[in-house]
Design a protein around this nucleic acid. Structure first.
Lengths: 134, 134
DNA sequence: TTAGTTTTAATAATCGTTATTATTTATGGA
DNA sequence: TCCATAAATAATAACGATTATTAAAACTAA
């Protein structure tokens, strides 16, 4: 795990942590450009991959959409908004998921699982209500 | 839910159910082409969308990969192989996921959730073993 | 039968991401 | 310090999956 912390990586990492959101590569690209106007989008993609590989950040592959990256590397699940695709961290009890049956299903050797709660975020609920009034 | 069952839709639906697998649009396109050589890939995509919208089939959006479609519309979860991306149906107990806390997290109005067990399928485990021997 | 609607095939366009490549930047000895 | 080489970068082309466009064909209902 010899990872050279280049300027680009440092700023990418810093901006992700600073945002405290689950940003996509291009959202992060916009933020990083303010400090490094000449950085390339491919560099952002490549380094997000490298940083998540090295365990500095988490990679979120949510339901067929754009990948998002997570500033929080501790074990947790996610809620995501079906309307605006915002993602939030979640710390629900994982009990009932550590049962024997999950350890080996259908002959698979199980390495983990992904739990996504799907819903509508507060902001989108509010918007929907206001739409109704019209 | 007035859905005209065209020949194209009929055959797409039939081939998906026949396969009893979680096929992607292009895999299904290959199968359907045998009966309708002139069908267009876009037609397959469009009708898979329509059929899943109407509840005839399920749509699987697994972790950043190609969408797959499910012949089984009853409520269930999935295991998928991290190596070959094969997907299998699963009927594990959903207890511990119907708790109060899940109903409303972080102000979200919860509509559902997706649980993916990740692992290595029997075929890929076997392959890995044979690789080791060499 | 005909006018209007829906669906289709063919294909262009788009979106997110990865690959290529020439250039720049760092690194580790002589 | 200088040089060789290794790694990382910016720019951009290419890619794979999916969606949009459009003109033609197939239905449907008066």
């Amino acid at each position: 795990m010899q990872l050279r912390m280049t300027n680009q990586r440092e700023i990418i990492l810093r901006e992700l942590k600073k945002s405290r959101q689950h940003l996509s590569a291009d959202e992060l690209y916009d933020k990083v450009k303010k400090y490094m106007p000449r950085i390339s989008l491919a560099t952002v993609y490549r380094n997000l991959e490298i940083l998540s590989e090295a365990g500095f950040i988490g990679k979120l592959e949510i339901s067929g959409r754009q990948k998002r990256f997570d500033y929080d590397v501790t074990e947790h699940d996610h809620v995501y908004c079906a309307v605006c695709h915002r993602v939030d961290n979640l710390n629900i009890e994982r009990q009932g998921l550590h049962t024997r049956e999950i350890k080996s299903v259908k002959g698979y050797s199980v390495t983990g699982y992904r739990l996504e709660i799907v819903g509508i975020c507060p902001a989108c609920q509010k918007k929907a209500k206001q739409e109704k009034k019209k």
